[in-house]
Amino acid sequence: DLSALRVEEVQNVINAMQKILECPICLELIKEPVSTKCDHIFCKFCMLKLLNQKKGPSQCPLCKNDITKRSLQESTRFSQLVEELLKIICAFQLDTGLEYANSYNFAKKENNSPEHLKDEVSIIQSMGYRNRAKRLLQSEPENPSLQETSLSVQLSNLGTVRTLRTKQRIQPQRTSVYIELGSDSSEDTVNKATYCSVGDQELLQITPQGTRDEISLDSAKKAACEFSETDVTNTEHHQPSNNDLNTTEKRAAERHPEKYQGSSVSNLHVEPCGTNTHASSLQHENSSLLLTKDRMNVEKAEF
Rank of each mutant, 00 (worst) to 15 (best):
S3I: 05
S3C: 07
S3L: 06
S3F: 12
A4V: 02
A4K: 00
L5P: 11
L5F: 07
V7A: 03
V7R: 01
E8L: 10
E9C: 00
E9F: 00
Q11D: 03
Q11M: 04
N12E: 05
N15F: 15
N15V: 09
A16R: 06
M17Y: 00
K19C: 00
I20F: 12
I20K: 00
I20R: 03
E22Q: 02
C23L: 00
I25V: 03
I25T: 00
C26Y: 00
C26T: 01
L27K: 04
L27D: 02
E28Y: 01
E28A: 02
E28K: 00
L29S: 04
L29M: 05
L29C: 02
I30A: 12
K31D: 07
E32M: 05
P33F: 00
P33R: 01
P33D: 01
V34P: 00
V34D: 00
T36C: 01
T36H: 00
K37P: 08
K37H: 11
K37D: 14
C38A: 00
D39F: 01
D39K: 13
I41K: 01
K44N: 04
F45G: 15
F45Y: 09
F45P: 15
F45E: 15
F45V: 13
L48D: 11
K49A: 03
K49N: 01
L50C: 02
L50W: 15
L51T: 02
L51R: 01
N52F: 02
Q53A: 06
Q53M: 15
Q53D: 07
Q53L: 13
K55W: 02
K55Y: 06
G56M: 10
P57I: 04
S58W: 04
S58E: 06
L62H: 00
L62G: 02
C63E: 02
C63S: 00
K64Y: 02
K64S: 03
N65I: 08
D66N: 12
D66G: 12
I67G: 02
I67K: 03
I67V: 10
T68R: 02
K69W: 08
K69C: 05
K69R: 04
R70I: 13
R70Q: 13
R70P: 11
R70V: 11
L72D: 06
L72N: 09
Q73Y: 15
Q73V: 15
S75A: 14
T76A: 08
R77M: 14
R77L: 15
R77Y: 08
F78T: 15
F78K: 00
S79R: 05
Q80R: 09
Q80Y: 05
L81Y: 07
E83D: 06
E83P: 15
E83I: 02
E84L: 05
E84A: 03
L85C: 11
L86T: 14
A91S: 05
A91D: 02
F92I: 03
Q93F: 00
L94V: 08
G97S: 03
E99C: 07
Y100M: 13
S103M: 15
Y104F: 10
N105P: 11
N105D: 12
F106E: 01
F106A: 05
A107T: 11
E110S: 04
N111Q: 02
N112I: 12
S113Y: 04
H116N: 10
L117I: 10
K118S: 02
V121W: 09
I124D: 09
Q125W: 03
Q125S: 13
Q125A: 11
M127R: 02
G128N: 05
Y129W: 13
Y129I: 09
R130L: 09
N131L: 05
R132A: 13
R132I: 12
A133F: 11
K134E: 12
R135L: 14
R135C: 08
R135M: 06
R135K: 13
L136E: 14
Q138Y: 05
S139K: 13
S139P: 12
S139I: 08
E140A: 03
E140N: 10
P141C: 08
P141V: 10
E142V: 08
N143C: 05
P144W: 04
P144D: 14
Q147E: 14
Q147W: 03
E148A: 08
T149W: 03
T149H: 09
T149P: 11
S150P: 01
S150F: 01
L151H: 07
S152E: 09
S152M: 07
Q154D: 14
Q154M: 09
Q154E: 10
Q154A: 08
L155I: 09
S156N: 08
S156A: 08
S156M: 05
S156L: 06
S156F: 08
S156D: 12
N157V: 01
N157G: 07
L158S: 13
G159S: 14
G159D: 07
G159L: 02
T160H: 09
T160E: 14
V161H: 09
V161K: 09
T163R: 10
T163M: 01
L164H: 02
L164A: 03
L164D: 00
R165Y: 13
R165G: 12
T166R: 10
T166P: 03
Q173R: 14
R174P: 01
S176Y: 00
V177F: 03
D188Q: 09
T189I: 07
N191R: 02
T194I: 09
S197I: 10
S197K: 10
S197D: 09
V198A: 08
G199E: 12
G199R: 08
D200P: 10
Q201P: 10
L203H: 08
L203R: 13
T207C: 02
T207A: 09
T207V: 12
Q209S: 03
G210R: 03
E214L: 03
I215R: 06
I215M: 05
I215G: 13
S216T: 05
S216M: 12
L217V: 14
L217M: 13
S219F: 11
A220C: 12
A220I: 05
A220P: 02
A220G: 15
A220F: 03
K221L: 02
K221D: 01
K222E: 11
K222R: 11
A223Y: 11
A223M: 06
A223Q: 14
A224V: 05
A224S: 02
E226I: 03
E226H: 15
E226A: 05
E229G: 13
E229A: 09
T233R: 01
H237I: 15
Q239R: 13
S241L: 14
N243I: 05
L245S: 13
N246K: 04
N246R: 07
T247A: 07
T247K: 12
T248Q: 03
T248S: 14
T248R: 03
T248G: 11
T248V: 12
E249T: 04
E249H: 07
E249F: 12
K250G: 07
K250R: 09
A252K: 02
A253V: 14
E254N: 13
E254R: 10
E254T: 08
R255W: 04
H256T: 05
P257N: 12
P257H: 03
P257A: 04
E258K: 12
K259L: 07
Y260E: 07
Q261T: 11
Q261V: 08
Q261H: 08
G262C: 08
G262Y: 01
S264L: 07
S266H: 02
N267Q: 15
N267K: 06
N267L: 14
L268W: 10
H269K: 06
H269D: 05
V270E: 08
V270C: 14
E271P: 10
P272F: 06
G274D: 13
A279Y: 14
A279K: 12
S280G: 12
S280F: 07
S281L: 02
S281F: 14
L282C: 03
L282Y: 14
Q283N: 05
L289H: 13
D294N: 14
D294S: 06
R295E: 08
N297L: 08
V298F: 15
V298L: 06
E299D: 07
A301D: 15
E302G: 14
F303V: 15
